[in-house]
Amino acid sequence: MEAFLVSTGVVALGEMGDKTQLLAMLLAAKFRKPVPIILGILVATLANHAMAGAVGDWVARALGPDVLRWVIGVSFLAMAGWMLIPDKVDEGDANAVSRFGVFGTTVIAFFLAEMGDKTQIATVGLAARYSDFVAVVAGTTLGMMLANVPAVFMGGKIAAKVSMTLVHAIAAAIFAVLGVLTLLNVGKLF
């Protein structure tokens, strides 16, 4: 349960103000069809985070526990720093070829936008940290949906009222705490 809850919380916070959340707002403004956009986000996130979780699971098995602890700890600290850097949506992501329809365009745009994104890298680290692939992928996917579904429905209204700097600072603090705890070998999994 810890893997699921931590994965959900970290990704939901980390996704606030992220380029994929901005992409959700742009797609909602362009197509004005929330259901296929939300389903597209779900499918793209499941596919992307399942691959990232598999990589994290493989890394956990390939490295010994001591090396893994240091790699994950330093990675979480790096993620803490990265969370403090604001994202901007790439225009190419929002202008994906619409011949695929709203759903297809959303799946393609979100899948590509998530490649190498903070939340994908976080999923790799979380899957390596917690040896529960399903809980991590389910948690990171839920975190993405918690951040992006309101963005589809409320778009710019949310961004205007929530301090993205504060949200990113909280996410960075969580990653920093996870990194330090991992390096100090605190926790039942190491």
Rank of each mutant, 00 (worst) to 15 (best):
M1P: 09
E2R: 10
A3T: 05
F4G: 04
F4N: 02
L5N: 01
L5D: 00
V6Q: 01
S7P: 05
S7C: 07
G9F: 12
V10Y: 07
L13Q: 07
G14L: 12
M16H: 07
G17L: 13
G17P: 11
K19S: 14
Q21Y: 10
L22Y: 11
M25G: 03
M25Q: 08
A28W: 10
K30F: 06
F31V: 00
F31I: 00
R32V: 13
R32N: 13
R32I: 06
V35F: 13
P36H: 08
I37R: 04
I37W: 00
I37V: 15
V43N: 01
A44D: 11
L46P: 04
L46E: 03
L46H: 03
A47T: 12
M51N: 05
G53W: 05
G53I: 08
V55S: 07
D57P: 00
A60P: 02
R61K: 13
A62R: 07
L63F: 12
L63A: 13
R69I: 03
W70M: 11
V71Q: 03
V71M: 13
G73E: 09
G73C: 09
V74N: 04
V74F: 12
S75Y: 11
F76I: 11
M79K: 06
G81N: 02
G81M: 05
M83N: 14
L84F: 02
L84V: 03
K88T: 09
V89M: 14
D90W: 02
A94V: 02
A94D: 01
N95R: 11
V97T: 13
R99L: 08
G101F: 08
G101I: 02
V102C: 02
T105M: 01
T106N: 06
I108H: 05
F110H: 12
F110Q: 09
F111Y: 11
F111T: 07
F111C: 04
A113C: 11
M115D: 12
M115Q: 14
G116M: 09
D117L: 14
K118S: 10
K118F: 13
I121V: 15
A122I: 06
A122K: 01
V124K: 03
V124T: 05
G125V: 09
G125P: 00
R129L: 15
R129W: 15
S131H: 15
A135N: 14
A135K: 14
A138T: 11
G139F: 10
T140H: 09
T140D: 14
T141A: 13
T141I: 13
L142W: 12
L142E: 10
G143A: 13
G143S: 12
G143R: 07
G143V: 11
M145S: 12
M145K: 09
A147P: 00
N148G: 02
V149Y: 01
A151G: 03
A151I: 06
F153R: 10
M154C: 08
G155T: 12
G155R: 05
G156S: 12
K157G: 06
I158T: 02
A159C: 00
M164V: 10
T165S: 04
L166G: 06
H168M: 13
A169D: 00
I170V: 15
A171N: 05
F175L: 06
L178Y: 07
L178N: 10
L181N: 15
N185V: 10
N185G: 15
G187D: 08
L189P: 01
L189R: 04
